[in-house]
Simulated assay, not measured.
Amino acid sequence: MTVLLTGLPSAGKTSLATAARAALLAAGHRVEVLDGDVVRRELWPELGLSPEDRERNLTRIGSVALLLARNGIITIVAAIAPYAHSRAALRAAHAGVPFAEVHVATPVEVCRRRDVKGLYARQARGEITGLTGVDAVYEEPLTPDLRIDTTLEDVGESAARLVDFILHGPVLSSPHGGRECSGRF
């Protein structure tokens, strides 16, 4: 299966994916994490942050995720994935392969405080533009398969909820309108 973790920069997608991967591996599952930033940097560094390049990045990540999922690997994609139509296209490309969209729903104010990569500070100083959720669009998922609010519990608790969803959740091939999870990172 493929699990897409979508959310704003510094929402906790990578932390959640990494913790869930460790738990799934410990339970004997085959699992990989495809982090949007890492994949972009290492596999296709020619892509920028334009809307077109963001879509290309997600499409390419989705192709790798599908290949892994078809071969029995739980694939967790941690990517901003700001556009609803791109996420829908990713789901459609997984026809016959379980797919779940998980919204890592962290308010922009919390992301700004976390600012793991310093992007919000750079944007505030005018050094960069086009920061998703600030001066570039982020189309929040309306009916994700799962929504995790990262403001009320730690990463371990949220990862446990994600793992439970992956292992025991509903059939993940179509949108279900979201089970809710609350968490704080």
Rank of each mutant, 00 (worst) to 15 (best):
L152Y: 03
T59P: 02
H94C: 15
R87L: 08
R113P: 01
S173Q: 11
Y83L: 12
H176N: 11
A22F: 00
G96I: 11
A84I: 01
V33N: 07
V104L: 05
T59N: 14
L131G: 08
G36Y: 05
L162I: 00
S158D: 09
D149W: 01
E52H: 15
P170N: 07
R21A: 13
V102D: 01
V3G: 10
E42K: 09
R114W: 00
L119G: 06
A121T: 11
A81W: 02
V104I: 15
V108W: 02
T6N: 06
H103R: 01
L8S: 07
H103W: 15
R40W: 09
A121E: 12
G130F: 08
A105V: 00
P51K: 13
A69T: 04
K117N: 04
D164L: 04
W44C: 14
D164F: 04
C111R: 05
L5V: 02
G28E: 13
L8Q: 04
H85E: 13
D35N: 12
D115V: 06
R21D: 00
T6R: 07
H176C: 08
E139C: 08
A136I: 04
D149C: 09
G118L: 09
V134S: 05
A92N: 09
I128H: 05
D164K: 11
A92E: 15
P98C: 04
S10Q: 03
E157Q: 14
P82C: 10
H103T: 01
L4S: 11
A78E: 00
L4G: 11
T129K: 12
F99E: 04
S63C: 09
V38S: 10
A84C: 02
A160P: 06
I74Q: 06
L152T: 14
A11T: 02
G48F: 10
S182P: 02
S63F: 11
E46I: 06
L90P: 10
L25D: 11
T151L: 08
S63W: 10
L152E: 14
V171A: 14
A22D: 03
A20L: 01
S174T: 13
I80M: 08
A160S: 14
E153N: 10
L162Y: 00
T2K: 12
G130N: 06
P9S: 13
I73T: 15
S10I: 01
T2R: 14
I80A: 06
A92R: 14
G169S: 09
V33P: 07
P51L: 13
D35A: 09
R113V: 09
T106H: 01
T18G: 00
S63V: 10
G36M: 10
V3R: 05
V163S: 10
R87F: 05
A159Q: 09
A81L: 07
I74Y: 12
S173E: 14
C111E: 03
P9M: 07
S182W: 06
